[in-house]
Design a protein around this nucleic acid. Structure first.
Length: 645
DNA sequence: CTAGGGTTAG
């Protein structure tokens, strides 16, 4: 009986067969039917042999030597193709291994677990793992558990990891250095500290000395789970031991401090690095710069960038992004532009966001022409402006009242296939509204709907504001109803606009009703909203009522700190000094503020309102002073006496 | 091993 080609593959000739396939791919045609079209035998989901069939022979030198035998085996491609997650997967694997007399080893199983098909689905990995453990004369090695755990972790499948890890712990395999390092790294990355520490203990028990890498993985694990104190302790152990912390250890600790909101401590550690001659690298600076940026501390961000420059470190593109956008947000467009220039000089390409930030900053500081020049420049540089860029341009133009140009760019934006978004519409509506061109504002508001653009609360708010500011509060109220009808949730701004508008029309009761509606909806009033209400009430002579409502806010955890000042300012400005004094006395009587502070506030309010005489009178009197230190007597003169004197 | 896409509105 002639030897079947199938048998050749199972024997020691398999490797030479592999070479033959590479040199003469046409040989594959001569293979028995079950290998050419394995689907017909139920082995493969895909009738076309997978690329692995030939791929391992193309460049064997790239395969690590420990794995070379597997990678070079021609049936590896087939067995991988069997890992398809089909219901017959286990049966197919079983059939294939039997037919080719493939003996499973932990080394081979872990090799297969490292394949790409496993990364796609943790289910397949787990099923393969389970199938293998049921095979005769086979027991999983520690590397198999490590691979499986890493796959499950990569899939974010923490629940199943816990199960598999428990099993792994119970099996009682001997811990190895590489297994410990892999596990500490991967468990650390997802913050499974309990399991990580078990591995650490096992490692120590088995006399494995942790390396610098092991320590760094441990630090990273602790930091990722926000165990900063523990990380600090480990770090101290390193400092006192034979393995000194390196740049990575410092970077990890700095990341930890930054993540816990302690950027200052992170910067302090950077200085310590310098003292101990551990060189900070670009990653050190990136961690710190990002932390500073996230906090809005753009000055520190810039300082760190300059330090990087001085140290002649390679500056990553993202660092430029942070510095430029930071400067732009601070309104320092010139400085931002100068950093942009150094970026270009260093061979870094800008991007849409950097251009957008610069355009926005120039527009906001009044250099609209410079902003438009950058807008053209970015296009010359090969960047297509996006919705945000158009948003910045349109906003800038609207704020300057250059509405026709703003409209032109919104059309231009649509013509370039970009959506005109609610942000742009709200800018335009606001622009027309502020210019008193209510018809056009309304038209745009309706057009949005026709264009299929969903209106957000901003769009309603700006139109409502326009109505309110032009004496059309009833139109604003109608729009408010429509907003509710169209399922758009009002915000604190919506209520502020309506409350101010109603007070302007002396419709106090309605304003107060809306305030209650707002509070009932669970919307927390902000400073502007409180100001609208308190000033509105004060000016309509209801000072006591204003004070009462403000007092009611305290139990809700809202401290209206500038409300007193706002009210006194409003009353003084309206020349209603008597009421202002009464209010000042009332606040002191309630014990809400110390008399000295109220005295200063009232004095400033009088001064601001141009009432110099009374301001001077107050300044030279003892009015409002609560405690006479010299005579140790409690003594307070009512503010009301200011007018009686 | 440690860092990695921001930017627009009242």
């Amino acid at each position: 009986m002639p030897m079947s080609p199938m048998r050749i593959l199972t024997g020691p000739l398999s490797r030479s067969m592999g070479k033959l396939f590479h040199l003469f791919p046409s040989i594959a045609v001569d293979l028995p039917k079950n290998l050419q079209s394995p689907a017909s035998r139920g082995y493969f989901a895909n009738p076309i042999p997978p690329p692995e069939w030939v791929e391992p022979f193309t460049d064997i030198s790239t395969v690590p030597s420990a794995r070379r035998d597997f990678a070079a085996s021609p049936w590896v491609g087939h067995i991988r193709a069997l890992l398809d997650g089909s219901p017959d997967m286990e049966a197919n694997l079983h059939g294939f291994c039997r037919k080719f007399m493939i003996k499973l080893t932990p080394n081979f199983v872990s090799f297969l677990l490292k394949g790409d098909e496993m990364k796609r689905s943790s289910d397949i990995a787990l099923r393969f793992f389970r199938w293998a453990s049921g095979q005769k004369d086979y027991r999983h090695g520690i590397e198999c558990y490590v691979c499986l755990i890493e796959i499950l972790l990569a899939c974010g499948d923490t629940g199943r990891v816990k199960g598999v890890f428990g099993e792994f712990r119970d099996v009682g395999l001997l811990m190895t250095e590489s297994a410990a390092n892999s596990l500490i790294r991967s468990l650390g990355n997802v913050g499974m500290v309990e399991e990580l520490l078990w591995v650490w203990r096992k490692m120590k028990e088995n006399g494995i000395v942790p390396s610098l890498y092991t320590y760094n993985f441990l630090l990273n694990g602790l930091v990722n789970s926000m165990f900063i104190d523990s990380a600090e302790k480990v770090f101290e152990v390193m400092e006192g031991g034979s393995i000194s912390p390196d740049t990575v250890s410092y970077n990890t600790m700095i990341k930890g401090y930054c993540r816990s909101g302690n950027t200052e401590k992170g910067i302090k550690l950077l200085r310590e690095m310098e003292e101990r001659t551990v060189e900070p690298d670009k990653i050190t600076y990136m961690i710190l710069m990002q932390a500073c940026y996230a906090r809005g501390d753009f000055d520190s961000c810039l300082r760190l960038y300059h330090e990087m420059e001085e140290k002649q470190l390679e500056i990553p593109p993202h660092a430029y992004s942070l510095v430029i956008t930071g400067l732009c947000k601070d309104g320092k467009c010139m400085e931002g532009y100068s950093v942009y220039n150094s970026m270009v000089k260093n061979g870094c390409k800008a991007n849409v966001a950097i251009y957008t930030a610069l355009i926005d900053a120039y527009a906001k500081c009044g250099s609209m022409d410079e902003a438009m020049r950058l807008f053209e420049k970015m296009k010359d540089d090969g960047f297509q402006p996006d919705e945000v860029t158009y948003g910045a341009v349109i906003n800038g133009l609207c704020k300057l009242g250059r509405l026709e140009e703003a409209m032109f760019y919104s059309e231009h934006c649509r013509d370039s296939g970009l959506a005109v978004n609610p942000t742009m519409y709200s800018c335009l509506i606001d622009g027309y509204g502020k210019a008193g061109r209510l018809d056009e504002a309304e038209k745009l508001f309706e057009k949005m709907g026709e264009m299929g653009c969903t209106r957000d609360s901003y769009c309603y708010n700006v139109l409502m504001d326009a109505y309110g500011k032009h004496g059309k509060i009833d139109d604003a109220l109608t729009l408010f109803k429509r907003m509710e009808y169209e399922h758009c949730d009002p915000t604190v701004y919506t209520f502020t606009i309506l409350i101010s508008g109603l007070f302007t029309e002396h419709r106090n009761e309605e304003a107060l009703k809306l305030w209650d509606v707002m509070v009932d909806k669970g919307i927390t009033p902000n400073v502007a909203c409180i100001r609208a209400l308190s000033i509105g009430l004060c000016l309509s002579g209801k000072v006591a009522r204003a004070c009462k409502i403000l007092d009611e806010l305290a139990p809700m955890g809202i401290i209206p700190d500038s409300a007193t000042e706002d009210m006194l300012n409003a009353l003084c400005k309206a020349g209603r000094i008597k009421e202002a004094c009464k209010l000042a006395d009332g606040i002191v009587d309630r014990g809400r503020e110390i008399p000295g502070k109220i005295r200063t506030v009232l004095l400033n309010a009088l001064r601001k309102a141009g009432n110099v005489d009374l301001a001077l009178k107050l300044m030279h009197s003892k009015i409002g002073i609560g405690y006479d230190r010299v005579h140790s007597i409690k003594k307070r003169v009512k503010f009301r006496t200011l007018l009686d004197l």
